[in-house]
């Protein structure tokens, strides 16, 4: 399992989202951020450069 997001990055993303996390919430959510890292790591190696997303817009 990957590490949680680095503290400066985590704090910047939470600040951008405008969330008033308590210290306990900050610890809990930052610990869980390793799940996000695991999910994104799982996808990235498989993406082919020309692969279209499943949400291609059709007017």
């Amino acid at each position: 399992m990957p590490d949680p997001l680095p503290e400066p990055l985590f704090d910047a993303l939470i600040a951008r989202a405008g969330l008033p996390l308590t210290p306990a919430e900050r610890d809990s959510v930052r610990a869980a951020s390793r799940h996000i890292a695991a999910l994104t790591e799982r996808l990235r190696p498989q993406a082919q450069v020309a692969l279209e997303p499943a949400t291609v817009f059709r007017p």
Partner: peptide
Amino acid sequence: ERLALATLVSAADYLQAQRQRR
């Protein structure tokens, strides 16, 4: 807390997921 975690997902992450979905 689940929604706070969701704010950490980037636009690129979302699109990679939609590409994988296809």
